[in-house]
């Protein structure tokens, strides 16, 4: 099939960007979206043009590197799918496709469709861990965790840190990302000791990074490729409130 691509081009964080239009032909429905861009890029290289920069790595939906807003939706139209797992059969012949980077102030554009998501790393560095020394752990089975708690913690822990939540949020808020980690560790017995400080430190860092504030639009959970739900955000809010009432 043939497609018209409108792709955001921006040479560095400071320069203004614009859309370049590309007409691609002979796109196979069995191609992934990124493979379609690979083919485009190879053609551009051959014709002495700058290929389109975009982030990717595992191409199996788990590393969280890929990050395109396709036709106004982070990771494209398919539910619970990262861009790398989006296939061209979701598009129709002759379609016009708009490809933009994550547009979040806290994720400055590096080049074209590549953004800098280190703000997410810094939020986790602020407290998204359990302080346990290597070798200082007791036997694994001395910490029983009820199955339903472990399952819920796991669901929150599946976050891939792609940034689609902030990209989708009308307020460009990182709440779902932060809340997922807080739920993951806050649910488990291992995470209780630092529960108060964790939620405080991570949220303080989130505010510092310049993300917007959650306004409960719930766009994040619709965009999340791992379907993490906004119940995590409610839980995070509760945990923060709780930190002002209870010592531990």
């Amino acid at each position: 099939m043939n497609l018209t691509l409108n792709i955001w081009r921006q040479s560095d964080p400071e320069s203004p960007g614009n859309f370049d239009v590309f007409n691609v032909s002979d796109v196979s429905p069995d191609m992934s979206f990124l493979e379609m861009l690979d083919v485009l890029n190879e053609g551009l290289i051959v014709h002495d043009e700058e290929p389109v920069a975009f982030d990717y790595d595992c191409r199996e939906g788990i590393c969280g590197a890929c990050s395109l807003v396709i036709n106004g939706s982070p990771h494209g139209p398919q539910k619970a799918t990262t861009t790398c797992q989006l296939y061209m059969r979701e598009f129709s012949d002759g379609e016009e496709v708009w490809i933009e980077p994550w547009r979040v102030g806290a994720f400055p554009v590096v080049r074209d469709l590549v953004v800098d998501r280190s703000a997410y790393d810094r939020i986790l560095q602020a407290g998204g861990f359990v302080s346990v020394r290597t070798g200082a752990a007791p036997d694994g089975n001395t910490i029983p965790v009820p199955k339903d708690v472990a399952d819920r913690a796991f669901t929150s822990a599946t976050c891939i840190g792609c940034g689609a939540c902030a990209a989708a949020c009308p307020s460009a808020s990182a709440s779902l990302f932060v809340a997922a980690k807080i739920s993951h560790l806050g649910l488990l017995p291992q995470g209780q000791t630092e529960r108060n400080s964790r939620v405080r430190m991570m949220l303080a860092q989130m505010d510092k990074e310049g993300f917007g504030h959650c306004s409960n639009h719930a766009e994040c959970q619709s965009a999340c490729p791992k379907e993490i739900d906004i119940g995590r955000i409610a839980r995070m809010n509760r945990d923060l409130g709780r930190s002002f009432i209870r010592r531990t």
């Binding site: 861990f129 359990v130 346990v132 290597t134 070798g135 200082a136 752990a137 007791p138 036997d139 694994g140 089975n141 910490i143 029983p144 965790v145 009820p146 199955k147 472990a150 399952d151 913690a153 796991f154 822990a157 993951h184 560790l185 488990l188 291992q190 995470g191």
Partner: peptide, 22 residues
């Protein structure tokens, strides 16, 4: 065996049985 202990202490959500054990 130490790896499992370490990972559990870090909060890695391994699958559990209904008993709450690994």
């Amino acid at each position: 065996v130490n790896i499992i202990d370490q990972a559990v202490a870090q909060g890695v959500p391994f699958a559990r049985e209904y008993s709450g054990l690994l």
